[in-house]
Amino acid sequence: MSEAIRYEVNALSTFVERLFENAGADAEVAQVVTRVLLEGELLGHRTHGLNLVSRYIGGMLSGQVKAQAAALEQVSDSGVASLFDGNYVLGPYCVSRALDCAASGASAQGIGIAVVRRAAHIGCLAAYLKPYTDRGLVALVYSSDPSVGLVCAHGGVDPIYTPNPIAAGIPTRGEPILLDVSMSTVTMAMVSQCRDNGSKLAHPVLMSNEGKASDDPADFFTSPQGSILPLGGQGFGHKGFALAILVEALTSGLAGHGRKDCPDQWGASATAVVIDPRFFGGLQAFTDETSFLGQLILASRPVDPERPVRLPGQAGLALRSKALAQGVSLAPTLVADLNQLAAQLQVAALGH
């Protein structure tokens, strides 16, 4: 098997930006989308990192996805609350604009919230957070897709909603705490990965269309379709199910566009909330508390001495630091895919 090759971050960023620009994206959109996808790669979210470049550009070339900043419409803005219509613009650009808008509200009045409807695929939610925690801001992102049903209700069989992730960036005295959690037992990417690898899932996290829990990805890809169990599985799935409904309300509900509209194209509903602790107990008090809690957690006795307790995002941030210092490790298959796209778009290939 060929070994992964490391690429310098700035060179890789320039290469991907050129791919998007040559495919028709505005320079601003290309830069923002590249930054988000590359950040996902740096944090170790490989299924939602540079692996998405071909998918995004394929959507642009087919006309399903837009890549012009002017196509993103700001429908309303009160200074604290904003609504955007993505009009199927590349999702990372839509969410980044929403977060920036929410951050402006937070910096002015303590909290800001911005909602986006009809954004194209938005990638890894954790990839958006660090620029805001670096400024001492708490950033939260919620997401759903009203055009898709993948996860069943607790006690139900039929797929109703998407994994509906919640992500949050929490500043501390050191590295931030970064969490990114789906309201389903597993992600769709994991189910597809196991199917492609010919392997079973680690646990019975699927519901077959006959109403039986299963660890076989084949039981999802059936007709009628199977479903993914809510977070908590059969035993405690009522908790993940309840949180998923909350995400639906905070995204599609606030966006005014959701499942009732029967959209026939992938289009994320996303909500960004940014909070400035300076307007509350103060940033120092906030980071004193989050840092103290973090130290309590890290000092707690592990079940397995070989596997110390970690904070959410700690492993990803360690991968990020290594990649920034030594280069980003890319699988040969991904490099080949990117270079095939480069040839199509008349961009110089990614070297070794």
Rank of each mutant, 00 (worst) to 15 (best):
V33Q: 12
A4M: 12
V309R: 03
L50E: 11
G256K: 00
R135Y: 04
R195Q: 15
V53H: 03
A27L: 11
G169C: 05
R97Y: 04
T290H: 07
F220R: 10
E3A: 13
V33L: 06
T172R: 10
S199W: 15
I275K: 10
L90V: 14
P171L: 11
A244N: 07
Y7L: 06
V53I: 11
A25M: 05
V148F: 06
T185F: 02
C94H: 08
L283I: 07
L324Y: 12
A11V: 10
A315K: 09
G79V: 02
V115P: 05
Q68L: 00
Q225G: 00
V141F: 12
E8K: 14
V273L: 15
A119R: 09
R195Y: 14
A255M: 08
R195F: 13
Q314N: 03
V141Y: 09
L324F: 10
I228K: 07
V95F: 03
P312S: 02
F279E: 05
G112Y: 02
H257M: 12
H352T: 12
D77V: 09
L283N: 04
S2M: 12
L150R: 08
V191Q: 04
G40T: 07
N164Y: 02
L61E: 15
G235S: 14
A98G: 03
V274Y: 07
P204W: 00
G281D: 12
R6G: 02
G174Q: 01
I297G: 03
A81N: 14
G58W: 00
L179G: 10
T251M: 04
A318C: 01
G313T: 01
G105W: 02
S104W: 01
S321I: 00
A336V: 02
G59L: 07
V33P: 12
A102K: 10
G226I: 13
T162C: 02
L250V: 13
A342Y: 02
E210W: 06
I113D: 04
S321Q: 15
V274M: 06
